[in-house]
Simulated scan of single mutants.
Amino acid sequence: MQKDQLFTRRRMLLAGAAALGAAGTAGVVVASGGGEETHSAVPVAGPQARQALKPSAFRLQPFAADAPPRAAPRKLKARHEPILRISGRGRHMMLTFDDGPHPEYTPHILDTLAEYDVRAMFFVCGEMVVENKKLVARMADEGHVVGNHTWTHPLLTTLSREEIRGEMERTSDAIVNAYGERPQWFRAPYGAWNRAAFQLGAEMGMEPMAWTVDTTDWMTPGTDTIVDRVENGAAPGVVVLSHDAGGDRSQSVRAIRRYLPYLLESGYHLTVPPRRMS
Protein backbone atom coordinates (compact mmCIF):
# COMPACT_ATOMS: atom_id res chain seq x y z
CA MET A 1 0.00 0.00 0.00
CA GLN A 2 1.35 3.41 -0.90
CA LYS A 3 1.91 5.73 2.06
CA ASP A 4 -0.40 8.46 0.70
CA GLN A 5 -3.20 5.91 0.42
CA LEU A 6 -2.48 4.79 3.97
CA PHE A 7 -2.71 8.36 5.28
CA THR A 8 -6.04 8.87 3.47
CA ARG A 9 -7.44 5.65 4.89
CA ARG A 10 -6.39 6.63 8.39
CA ARG A 11 -8.06 10.02 8.13
CA MET A 12 -11.31 8.34 7.03
CA LEU A 13 -11.14 5.87 9.90
CA LEU A 14 -10.37 8.60 12.40
CA ALA A 15 -13.70 10.30 11.73
CA GLY A 16 -15.56 7.23 12.93
CA ALA A 17 -13.09 6.05 15.53
CA ALA A 18 -12.30 9.30 17.34
CA ALA A 19 -15.67 9.36 19.06
CA LEU A 20 -15.30 5.72 20.07
CA GLY A 21 -11.82 6.27 21.49
CA ALA A 22 -12.87 9.45 23.31
CA ALA A 23 -15.92 7.75 24.78
CA GLY A 24 -13.89 4.79 25.95
CA THR A 25 -11.24 7.01 27.46
CA ALA A 26 -13.81 9.15 29.25
CA GLY A 27 -15.39 6.02 30.73
CA VAL A 28 -12.04 4.86 32.07
CA VAL A 29 -11.39 8.23 33.69
CA VAL A 30 -14.70 8.01 35.55
CA ALA A 31 -14.03 4.43 36.62
CA SER A 32 -10.53 5.23 37.83
CA GLY A 33 -11.75 8.19 39.83
CA GLY A 34 -14.81 6.53 41.32
CA GLY A 35 -13.27 4.46 44.06
CA GLU A 36 -12.02 1.56 41.98
CA GLU A 37 -8.38 0.57 41.72
CA THR A 38 -6.43 2.95 39.52
CA HIS A 39 -4.04 1.20 37.14
CA SER A 40 -1.01 3.40 36.62
CA ALA A 41 2.49 3.03 35.30
CA VAL A 42 5.19 3.83 37.80
CA PRO A 43 7.60 6.22 36.07
CA VAL A 44 11.35 6.20 35.98
CA ALA A 45 12.63 9.74 36.25
CA GLY A 46 15.52 10.65 34.03
CA PRO A 47 17.85 13.63 34.32
CA GLN A 48 16.27 16.83 33.07
CA ALA A 49 19.28 18.61 31.60
CA ARG A 50 18.63 22.14 30.39
CA GLN A 51 21.66 22.29 28.10
CA ALA A 52 22.55 20.07 25.17
CA LEU A 53 24.74 17.17 26.21
CA LYS A 54 27.40 15.34 24.30
CA PRO A 55 26.15 12.03 22.92
CA SER A 56 28.28 10.04 25.34
CA ALA A 57 26.55 11.77 28.23
CA PHE A 58 23.01 10.73 27.41
CA ARG A 59 23.16 7.70 25.15
CA LEU A 60 22.40 4.33 26.66
CA GLN A 61 23.64 1.05 25.30
CA PRO A 62 21.11 -0.86 23.17
CA PHE A 63 19.18 -3.47 25.12
CA ALA A 64 20.54 -6.87 24.06
CA ALA A 65 20.93 -5.65 20.52
CA ASP A 66 22.73 -8.80 19.38
CA ALA A 67 20.61 -11.27 21.34
CA PRO A 68 18.35 -13.72 19.49
CA PRO A 69 14.57 -13.29 19.79
CA ARG A 70 13.11 -14.78 22.92
CA ALA A 71 11.15 -18.00 22.48
CA ALA A 72 8.13 -16.65 24.37
CA PRO A 73 7.38 -13.44 26.27
CA ARG A 74 6.28 -13.49 29.88
CA LYS A 75 2.49 -13.51 29.99
CA LEU A 76 0.69 -10.88 32.04
CA LYS A 77 -2.73 -10.71 33.64
CA ALA A 78 -5.13 -9.14 31.15
CA ARG A 79 -6.51 -5.76 32.09
CA HIS A 80 -10.04 -4.56 31.37
CA GLU A 81 -9.04 -0.98 30.66
CA PRO A 82 -5.89 0.77 29.44
CA ILE A 83 -3.50 2.71 31.63
CA LEU A 84 -4.25 6.41 31.36
CA ARG A 85 -1.85 8.06 33.77
CA ILE A 86 1.51 7.55 35.42
CA SER A 87 1.82 7.33 39.18
CA GLY A 88 4.43 8.62 41.55
CA ARG A 89 5.03 11.65 43.68
CA GLY A 90 5.97 14.98 42.19
CA ARG A 91 5.34 16.64 38.87
CA HIS A 92 5.84 13.70 36.51
CA MET A 93 4.52 13.60 32.95
CA MET A 94 5.11 11.39 29.93
CA LEU A 95 5.36 12.22 26.23
CA THR A 96 4.27 9.59 23.70
CA PHE A 97 4.45 9.52 19.90
CA ASP A 98 2.46 7.23 17.60
CA ASP A 99 2.59 5.82 14.05
CA GLY A 100 6.32 6.08 13.31
CA PRO A 101 9.13 5.89 12.84
CA HIS A 102 9.21 8.32 9.93
CA PRO A 103 12.53 9.16 8.25
CA GLU A 104 11.68 12.87 7.96
CA TYR A 105 9.99 13.73 11.27
CA THR A 106 11.17 11.19 13.85
CA PRO A 107 14.86 12.24 13.76
CA HIS A 108 13.94 15.84 14.57
CA ILE A 109 11.83 14.76 17.54
CA LEU A 110 14.64 12.51 18.76
CA ASP A 111 17.11 15.38 18.37
CA THR A 112 14.96 17.68 20.52
CA LEU A 113 14.50 15.03 23.21
CA ALA A 114 18.27 14.43 23.21
CA GLU A 115 19.01 18.14 23.50
CA TYR A 116 17.08 18.26 26.78
CA ASP A 117 18.06 14.74 27.89
CA VAL A 118 14.42 13.62 28.07
CA ARG A 119 13.01 10.13 27.46
CA ALA A 120 9.69 9.39 25.75
CA MET A 121 7.59 6.48 24.50
CA PHE A 122 7.24 5.67 20.79
CA PHE A 123 4.37 3.41 19.71
CA VAL A 124 5.54 2.19 16.32
CA CYS A 125 3.77 0.54 13.39
CA GLY A 126 5.38 -2.60 12.04
CA GLU A 127 5.24 -1.56 8.40
CA MET A 128 7.17 1.59 9.33
CA VAL A 129 9.66 -0.32 11.47
CA VAL A 130 10.82 -2.58 8.64
CA GLU A 131 11.64 0.49 6.53
CA ASN A 132 13.33 2.41 9.36
CA LYS A 133 15.08 -0.12 11.60
CA LYS A 134 17.94 2.24 12.40
CA LEU A 135 15.53 4.78 13.86
CA VAL A 136 14.01 2.14 16.14
CA ALA A 137 17.50 1.12 17.24
CA ARG A 138 18.30 4.77 17.91
CA MET A 139 15.17 5.09 20.08
CA ALA A 140 16.31 2.19 22.24
CA ASP A 141 19.93 3.36 22.21
CA GLU A 142 18.91 6.75 23.59
CA GLY A 143 16.77 5.30 26.38
CA HIS A 144 13.30 5.71 24.91
CA VAL A 145 10.60 3.05 25.29
CA VAL A 146 9.41 1.39 22.08
CA GLY A 147 5.82 0.13 22.09
CA ASN A 148 3.64 -1.89 19.70
CA HIS A 149 1.04 0.04 17.66
CA THR A 150 0.07 -2.81 15.24
CA TRP A 151 1.37 -3.45 11.75
CA THR A 152 -0.98 -1.40 9.53
CA HIS A 153 -2.80 0.81 12.09
CA PRO A 154 -6.25 -0.80 11.64
CA LEU A 155 -9.41 -0.28 13.67
CA LEU A 156 -9.12 -3.35 15.88
CA THR A 157 -12.82 -3.49 16.67
CA THR A 158 -13.48 -4.42 13.03
CA LEU A 159 -11.01 -7.33 12.98
CA SER A 160 -11.22 -10.97 14.03
CA ARG A 161 -9.18 -12.20 16.98
CA GLU A 162 -6.68 -13.90 14.67
CA GLU A 163 -6.32 -10.76 12.55
CA ILE A 164 -5.57 -8.74 15.68
CA ARG A 165 -3.04 -11.34 16.78
CA GLY A 166 -1.30 -11.14 13.40
CA GLU A 167 -1.10 -7.33 13.54
CA MET A 168 0.43 -7.42 17.00
CA GLU A 169 2.76 -10.39 16.57
CA ARG A 170 4.25 -9.16 13.30
CA THR A 171 4.99 -5.79 14.86
CA SER A 172 6.61 -7.28 17.96
CA ASP A 173 8.77 -9.47 15.75
CA ALA A 174 9.82 -6.44 13.69
CA ILE A 175 10.78 -4.55 16.85
CA VAL A 176 12.85 -7.51 18.04
CA ASN A 177 14.58 -7.61 14.68
CA ALA A 178 15.33 -3.89 14.91
CA TYR A 179 16.93 -3.77 18.37
CA GLY A 180 16.76 -7.13 20.09
CA GLU A 181 13.93 -6.90 22.64
CA ARG A 182 10.20 -7.47 22.58
CA PRO A 183 7.99 -4.49 23.38
CA GLN A 184 6.42 -4.40 26.82
CA TRP A 185 3.71 -1.87 25.95
CA PHE A 186 0.88 -1.76 23.44
CA ARG A 187 -1.45 0.99 22.22
CA ALA A 188 -4.59 0.35 20.18
CA PRO A 189 -4.91 2.51 17.05
CA TYR A 190 -7.49 5.29 17.48
CA GLY A 191 -7.80 4.32 21.14
CA ALA A 192 -10.32 1.67 20.10
CA TRP A 193 -9.82 -1.19 22.57
CA ASN A 194 -11.66 -4.47 22.86
CA ARG A 195 -11.38 -7.63 24.95
CA ALA A 196 -9.27 -9.42 22.35
CA ALA A 197 -6.71 -6.61 22.28
CA PHE A 198 -6.33 -6.67 26.07
CA GLN A 199 -6.09 -10.46 26.20
CA LEU A 200 -3.68 -10.85 23.30
CA GLY A 201 -1.49 -8.02 24.51
CA ALA A 202 -1.21 -9.68 27.92
CA GLU A 203 -0.36 -13.03 26.29
CA MET A 204 2.48 -11.27 24.45
CA GLY A 205 3.77 -9.63 27.63
CA MET A 206 2.49 -6.13 26.85
CA GLU A 207 0.60 -3.68 29.06
CA PRO A 208 -2.02 -1.41 27.42
CA MET A 209 -1.16 2.29 27.45
CA ALA A 210 -3.65 5.01 26.50
CA TRP A 211 -3.28 8.76 27.15
CA THR A 212 -4.60 11.68 29.16
CA VAL A 213 -4.04 14.65 26.84
CA ASP A 214 -4.55 14.37 23.07
CA THR A 215 -2.79 17.11 21.11
CA THR A 216 -4.90 16.18 18.03
CA ASP A 217 -1.80 16.96 15.99
CA TRP A 218 -3.06 14.41 13.44
CA MET A 219 -5.54 17.11 12.39
CA THR A 220 -2.65 19.57 11.78
CA PRO A 221 -4.42 22.29 13.82
CA GLY A 222 -1.36 24.54 13.83
CA THR A 223 1.78 24.62 15.93
CA ASP A 224 0.34 27.16 18.38
CA THR A 225 -2.70 24.97 19.03
CA ILE A 226 -0.57 21.89 19.70
CA VAL A 227 1.65 23.83 22.09
CA ASP A 228 -1.37 25.28 23.93
CA ARG A 229 -2.94 21.84 24.37
CA VAL A 230 0.21 20.43 25.93
CA GLU A 231 0.92 23.40 28.16
CA ASN A 232 -2.72 23.85 29.26
CA GLY A 233 -3.10 20.12 29.86
CA ALA A 234 0.10 19.75 31.85
CA ALA A 235 -0.46 18.20 35.27
CA PRO A 236 1.11 15.49 37.44
CA GLY A 237 0.56 12.04 35.95
CA VAL A 238 -0.47 13.23 32.50
CA VAL A 239 0.34 11.15 29.42
CA VAL A 240 0.51 13.26 26.25
CA LEU A 241 -0.39 11.82 22.84
CA SER A 242 1.36 13.15 19.73
CA HIS A 243 2.42 11.65 16.39
CA ASP A 244 5.69 11.40 14.49
CA ALA A 245 4.19 9.83 11.33
CA GLY A 246 0.87 9.16 9.59
CA GLY A 247 0.89 12.44 7.68
CA ASP A 248 2.63 15.81 7.69
CA ARG A 249 4.09 16.09 11.20
CA SER A 250 6.12 19.26 10.74
CA GLN A 251 3.80 21.03 13.20
CA SER A 252 4.50 18.36 15.79
CA VAL A 253 8.24 18.80 15.24
CA ARG A 254 8.01 22.55 15.77
CA ALA A 255 5.66 22.21 18.73
CA ILE A 256 7.92 19.99 20.85
CA ARG A 257 10.75 22.50 20.43
CA ARG A 258 8.52 25.02 22.21
CA TYR A 259 6.58 23.07 24.84
CA LEU A 260 9.42 20.80 26.04
CA PRO A 261 11.58 23.59 27.52
CA TYR A 262 8.40 25.16 28.95
CA LEU A 263 7.49 21.94 30.78
CA LEU A 264 11.01 21.58 32.17
CA GLU A 265 11.14 25.19 33.30
CA SER A 266 7.75 24.67 34.97
CA GLY A 267 9.23 21.91 37.09
CA TYR A 268 7.88 18.85 35.29
CA HIS A 269 9.92 15.66 35.04
CA LEU A 270 9.38 13.82 31.74
CA THR A 271 9.58 10.09 32.45
CA VAL A 272 9.04 6.66 30.95
CA PRO A 273 7.80 3.40 32.51
CA PRO A 274 10.37 1.05 34.03
CA ARG A 275 11.72 -1.77 31.92
CA ARG A 276 10.64 -5.14 33.28
CA MET A 277 13.37 -7.73 33.52
CA SER A 278 12.48 -11.15 32.17
Rank of each mutant, 00 (worst) to 15 (best):
175 I>D: 01
172 S>C: 13
172 S>L: 09
140 A>E: 03
180 G>S: 06
146 V>I: 12
145 V>S: 04
140 A>F: 04
181 E>Y: 11
150 T>K: 02
184 Q>C: 08
143 G>M: 05
143 G>Y: 02
154 P>A: 11
172 S>A: 15
158 T>A: 12
154 P>T: 12
167 E>P: 08
157 T>S: 15
144 H>K: 06
164 I>Q: 14
165 R>F: 10
179 Y>P: 01
150 T>S: 09
155 L>K: 04
179 Y>S: 02
146 V>N: 01
166 G>P: 04
172 S>D: 14
142 E>A: 09
159 L>W: 06
139 M>C: 12
182 R>S: 14
174 A>W: 00
174 A>Y: 01
149 H>L: 09
140 A>N: 11
150 T>I: 08
154 P>W: 06
182 R>H: 10
153 H>P: 03
140 A>P: 00
149 H>N: 12
173 D>W: 08
173 D>S: 15
144 H>P: 02
158 T>I: 11
179 Y>N: 06
159 L>M: 14
152 T>V: 01
166 G>F: 10
182 R>P: 11
149 H>E: 08
173 D>P: 04
182 R>V: 13
173 D>I: 12
150 T>H: 04
178 A>I: 07
152 T>L: 01
164 I>A: 09
179 Y>M: 03
153 H>T: 03
169 E>Y: 13
176 V>W: 09
176 V>T: 13
143 G>F: 03
173 D>E: 15
151 W>C: 09
163 E>D: 13
166 G>D: 14
146 V>F: 03
143 G>S: 09
139 M>D: 04
139 M>K: 05
174 A>P: 00
179 Y>V: 02
171 T>D: 05
183 P>Q: 11
176 V>Q: 13
163 E>Q: 15
176 V>Y: 10
153 H>C: 01
178 A>Y: 00
160 S>K: 09
156 L>S: 00
163 E>L: 07
181 E>L: 14
139 M>G: 05
162 E>P: 06
142 E>G: 11
158 T>V: 12
162 E>I: 10
